[in-house]
Design a protein around this nucleic acid. Structure first.
Lengths: 210, 210
DNA sequence: TAGAGCCACTCTAAATTTAGAGTCACCCTA
DNA sequence: TAGGGTGACTCTAAATTTAGAGTGGCTCTA
């Protein structure tokens, strides 16, 4: 499809080499026991180049995590004119993500999940990433509704939506760690995603009497 | 031994990738049927980079040939003070070249020999390479003897020495093409080398009556 | 608590690679 | 024999990578 030029192709290769090397070393010895210089050496690249591609050591792992979190915000921001927020969210949550056909990706996810789980630094960073995305989402909603940026309603909605997104990510991680197949994980994500969407639709009234 | 830095290591890798790609393509389709742009594509490098490393398309093949020819000149130029030219030449001819332990190198030599044999352009270039080296050797000898650069004696000696060098190269090529082992080739080179040196020692007197 | 060491990260200049346009010799064909 | 196409090779500016010398926070130890 996308005929990439030589320059662009090499950049992708370099980025992959660095990230793969990092994940491999982190998985072996733990995030804090590996220096960035070692990642660079393993990837056959200078330390400066590592920082050209990743803003921080933590980003070597959370690379895609920020993209994942921002992905929701962008999908909602760019939804077709006239479509409701909740409808666009439904589409986004139920979209195909390719895990069913890619067990190697599942294995990578499991590895990353373990690395993150083992490192307080990385868990903190993950919260930060989601927090920032949630903030951005709240601002988007507030803007669309012409309300103040710190409007409580925007925050509640943003948290609810990002919460679902994050919960599904957690689901994928735990399933991947449990060694489940991509196919099964995809099924579970779909089922749990629908349940979450239903809850959002109905609101919390049903919990009032619990 | 030699701890090469990252930059130098990558340059060697790039040079190898280009040369290997070129040899592979030339062996498949012939020297004239392959464009430099294709070599570049196969080596995953821009065309400009190919010319950064090799002055001409022909040098993709004769890469080492010029080094080989110049190697003799340099070895003689840098010989220990006081050692005679012929003595240094003997040392050079009988030096270990590693072919006995490297049958992959022998295979590469055979491939290159076939490519060169099939291309008039490349055969002409090979003659040119040896011619230039012979010229340089003659000048070196003339300089050392304080004679004019076009002194006949220097030329005779230079041609004799380079002739041996070249004959041994031809021997290696034909043996490699015949599929002989590196070990056997090394033995033959040594034996024939000694014979050649003997002839140089004795002079041509023995042929006077033939 | 001062000092030493470690390590993530930054900065700068130099080296290398790339894209792209252009030159030139050669061959082929009308 | 003029004109068009091909392909080796050159040139320039911009992009990328590297070496190497910092900076600054943190921890450990005397």
């Amino acid at each position: 499809m996308t005929e990439l030029g030589l320059r662009e192709r090499k950049k992708q290769q370099t980025r992959s080499r660095i990230r793969d090397a990092a994940i491999r070393l982190f998985a072996e010895r733990g995030f804090d026991q590996v220096r960035v210089a070692e990642v660079a050496r393993e990837a056959e690249v200078s330390e400066a180049t590592v920082f050209n591609y990743f803003a921080s050591k933590e980003d070597l792992v959370h690379d895609g995590m920020a993209d994942f979190a921002d992905g929701l915000v962008e999908a909602l921001r760019l939804r077709p004119a006239g479509e409701s927020l909740l409808s666009a969210f439904r589409t986004y949550v139920l979209r195909p993500h390719g895990l069913a056909e890619d067990d190697r990706a599942v294995a990578r996810i499991a590895t990353v999940a373990r690395i993150v789980g083992d490192s307080p630094t990385l868990r903190a960073r993950e919260r930060q990433v989601f927090d920032r995305a949630t903030r951005a989402l709240a601002e988007l909603i507030a803007t669309e509704n012409n309300t103040r940026a710190d409007d409580v309603e925007s925050w509640v909605i943003a948290n609810a939506l990002m919460g679902v997104n994050r919960a599904l990510k957690e689901l994928v991680h735990s399933q991947a760690l449990a060694g489940h197949s991509g196919k099964r994980i995809a099924q579970d994500v779909l089922a749990q995603g629908r349940r979450a969407l239903d809850i959002l639709d109905e609101g919390l009234a049903r919990y009032r009497t619990v």
